[in-house]
């Protein structure tokens, strides 16, 4: 009973701001509704629209392409970075690099998107650097280029999420029994062998958390994309979040927007649940 009292405030908030909207979204997805006027029940018609419309499907593909940049690269790089910091930079250097890497987490994503928009523009710093090292030929307006806009957005994602992964993995590494490393060294194991045989396996749970959080960040991304490219050029960086926003607030198709949102939720769950099972399993 006392336990329930402690949980109650959080539970009320959770129910009000998470569960209720979730249920309402599912409900709205079954209606044709402009957000104000009368709503018409249409069954699964909105879902049929979502799967039959190439533009909406395309946003899902883009989201999965972003997983490479938002999840795969930050987690891999984060492992390597954390291992390096753990091994060679335990003192003030480690603290500084941890802080620098984690800083993007503190900066509002909207501000980050704008700064990167400037950096990646035709006259931006990125192109200046490329020109300075003799690569003037490849300079372009990265966020306005059909082939490079998505990877460019991905780079912003790496910048944002690398610090998060690194810090989380570093924390996990601190828990690994130093005796393991010692005995491995006695057996003549090098840095890479230690990394592969001790560090990575011990961090299974932390890696699971990193992958989960970053995959969700990739699939459900909105702010970075909205601010840096708005989904353009064409639909090169259009993600479900942007389409949901446009459908709900510009086209005022609340039902269709909700259906896309539900599809997105289901997809996220489908991707996340196996990861959870794999990393938690019988660890």
């Amino acid at each position: 009973m006392v336990g329930w009292l402690f949980v109650a405030p959080a539970l009320v908030m959770y129910g009000l701001f998470v569960l209720q909207p979730l249920v309402l979204t599912v409900q709205y997805s079954l209606y044709r509704w402009d957000g104000v006027g009368p709503a018409t029940f249409v069954g699964l018609a909105n879902y049929a629209d979502v799967v039959s419309e190439p533009r909406l499907i395309e946003t899902l593909f883009n989201a999965f392409r972003l997983v490479i940049f938002f999840s795969l690269i930050p987690v891999t790089l984060g492992l390597v970075t954390a291992a390096i910091i753990q091994r060679v930079a335990r003192g003030w250097l480690g603290t500084v690099s941890r802080t620098v890497l984690f800083l993007p987490q503190v900066i509002p994503l909207v501000a980050a998107g704008i700064i990167w928009g400037r950096l990646l523009s035709l006259q931006g710093l990125v192109n200046e650097l490329l020109t300075a090292i003799g690569l003037g030929g490849v300079t372009r307006a990265w966020l306005g280029d059909f082939d490079f806009a998505l990877p460019a957005v991905g780079v912003i994602g790496i910048w944002v999420l690398l610090g998060f992964c690194t810090v989380l993995l570093l924390t996990g590494m601190a828990k690994v029994d130093p005796a393991l490393y010692e005995s491995a060294r006695l057996d003549g194991a090098g840095w890479f062998a230690e990394f592969r045989s001790i560090t990575v396996p011990s961090l299974r749970y932390e890696v699971g958390v990193c992958v989960t959080v970053t995959v969700i960040a990739a699939l459900a991304t909105f702010d970075i994309v909205y601010v840096s490219t708005g989904g353009g050029p064409g639909n090169a960086t259009a993600v479900p979040g942007i389409q949901i926003y446009i459908l709900a607030f510009l086209e005022r198709q609340v039902g269709l927007a909700s259906a896309l949102a539900v599809v997105l939720i289901v997809l996220v769950l489908l991707v996340i649940l196996p990861i959870q099972r794999l990393t938690r399993g019988d660890a």
């Binding site: 059909f146 050029p233 064409g234 446009i246 510009l250 086209e251 005022r252």
Partner: peptide
């Protein structure tokens, strides 16, 4: 013309015209 013809129609299509995709 409509609430989203700019966001869903003209803008992406004109960008595609610039990019040689349309």
């Amino acid at each position: 013309a409509t609430g989203s013809i700019f966001a869903q129609g003209w803008t992406p299509e004109l960008q595609s015209l610039v990019g040689g995709k349309e």
